[in-house]
Every structure is written in C-alpha cells, then in structure tokens.
Computed example of a mutant assay.
Amino acid sequence: MSVPRARVLMYHGVDRVSAARDPYGMFVSPAAFRRQMECLLEAGYVPVSEDDYLAAVHGARLQRKAVLVTFDDGYLGVGEHAAPVLRELGVPSVLYVPADRIGGTSDWLEERHRHRLMDAADLREVAAAGMTIGAHAADHRDLRGLADAELTVQTRQAREHLEGVVGAPVRSFAFPYGHHDERARAAVRAAGLEAGFGIWDAADELAIGRVDVNATDTLRTFRLKLRRFYPALRRATDPVPSLRRRAHDLLGRAPRETPDGRGAEVGSR
C-alpha cells in the first residue's frame, strides 16, 4: 500500500461563528466555503471520493490534481451549510466523527468554546446526501501512549459503533489533533481500517498528511494551500511560528465574525 499523490483538505466547522466563540479559527463561514469549493473546480482540481482515494492507497491511479475533502468532528453546521454546497457542486467528502460524542458537544474544548455535534439522524441524512462517514476515535482522545485495551475502544469499537449508526462500512480513520504513534497506527490497522489521516506529521498510509483550512483563510491563502509544496513549507516554518504568522499577515487574513454575527464575510483576495 502507498500514500496517493493527492491533496487532502481538512475542515472542521462551516458556520457563522465569532472569534470569541471560536478562538482556534475552526469555523469557515458558509460563504467562504462555497467560494473555496468553486475555486477548486475552477482551478481544475478533481474532487475524489473515499472509495477512489482508498483504491489509490491499494495501487490504483488517481486523476491529476485529485483532491479529497475531509471534515473532522461532525459539527452541526457541516450538515446545514457544507453538505448542500457539496451536493450541488458534485463534490464528495468524508466526515470523521468521534463515535461516543454523537449528538453531544465538542467537550474536549473549554466549555465556552464548545459547539453542538450532529446526532444519529443528522449523520444518516448527510450520508444519504453523499457524505461518507469515517472514524475519529471514540471520544476525541489523543491516542498516543494509550494501553492496548483503550486503543481497541478508540479504533475497532468506534468503527463498529459508527457502522451501526449509519448502516454502512467505515473504512478510514482520522487521528484526533492529528497525533499518532506507532502503536496507535497499528491499532488502526488491526481495527480493519484501510487508511488513517493525521495533519502535518505524515508517516504512511495509516497517517496521511492533510492541509488544514481555517477561518482566517482568504482565497489567496486557500490557493497557496493547494500547491504541492505547501506542506513542506508549513513544516519548515514550525520552528519559527512568528515567521509563519508574519507571512500570513502579508498574504492577508479573512475578517472574523463579530459576536453579534454580523461581521464581514471573507474577502475574495
């Protein structure tokens, strides 16, 4: 097995959320998300399904400029705002869900920054609309250093729980926080999952790198993140985050929503 040569995008929420409620910049506005998906298609990128991507993990070839769109956590706004856009534009996607938090909130965050997650009916609805469901552990716990029994809960049992909810096979996994180690990756394989996704700490087909898209991205920074060299550039600036922040400032940052929800929408630059 191998890691396909395709860009993998990672979103979290799609909704109108103020910076005060979303200090980590996880929520892309609905208008910005639509423009980003339109930008993908206009630039000639070819969105692929999980089936296509996993076939490539097993040796099949993907189209040039293939891109896989993924979401982590299962926020309500993804179903309300992102799923209709994806269906309209014909863009497949994968939604990674912490199995034991279905219908709950993102309780791994500070209480004032938590947001509601889809319930079982919501997940079945977006799955019927074409969004594939993947596993995001059981309770969004960092899997590094866990005992074998707990790793089984977070991988195999999480997969089985999700399959019971959506009535379809769950074939891939996304590591909470993007964190993984050798034992965590082995547990994903032992759970019968065909691929795993991290973020920047890519390893192999069980920890494939993804590029995060967040609330501060303009179309200019979004286009930059689509470039093949971007992950290497991002890793190179890890030791000097202030340099990365200055570069982002030069490229521009999208305005954030104000607390009353009437803030400026993301610009087009």
Rank of each mutant, 00 (worst) to 15 (best):
A129R: 14
G192S: 02
M131T: 15
G145P: 03
T105R: 13
A121V: 13
P176M: 03
K225H: 11
D148A: 14
D217F: 15
F222R: 08
T216A: 15
E163T: 14
A135F: 03
E111N: 13
A137Q: 00
R223Q: 04
R124C: 12
W200P: 04
A195C: 13
T132N: 02
R171C: 05
G167R: 09
H140R: 01
N214E: 12
A203V: 06
S106G: 09
A232P: 11
V126C: 08
V126Q: 03
E125D: 15
H115W: 08
V166Q: 08
R116F: 13
A232Y: 13
A207L: 02
R220V: 03
A147Y: 00
F173M: 00
P169H: 01
R185I: 05
D148E: 15
L193V: 11
D181Y: 12
P169D: 01
A120F: 06
A138Y: 00
E182F: 10
E110K: 11
N214I: 13
L193G: 12
A203F: 08
M131I: 11
G145H: 05
R228V: 09
F175L: 02
L193S: 08
A203C: 03
H161G: 03
A186N: 04
T155G: 02
L117W: 10
L226N: 12
R223T: 00
E160C: 00
A187S: 04
A195D: 03
E163L: 12
R141V: 15
T132V: 07
R144S: 12
G198D: 12
V188I: 01
V153C: 14
A207I: 07
H180T: 05
A147R: 10
H161S: 08
V166H: 09
V188Q: 06
I199P: 06
A232Q: 15
L123R: 02
E125P: 06
H136G: 07
E194C: 05
D212N: 15
F197N: 03
M118E: 01
R141Y: 12
Q154V: 01
I199F: 11
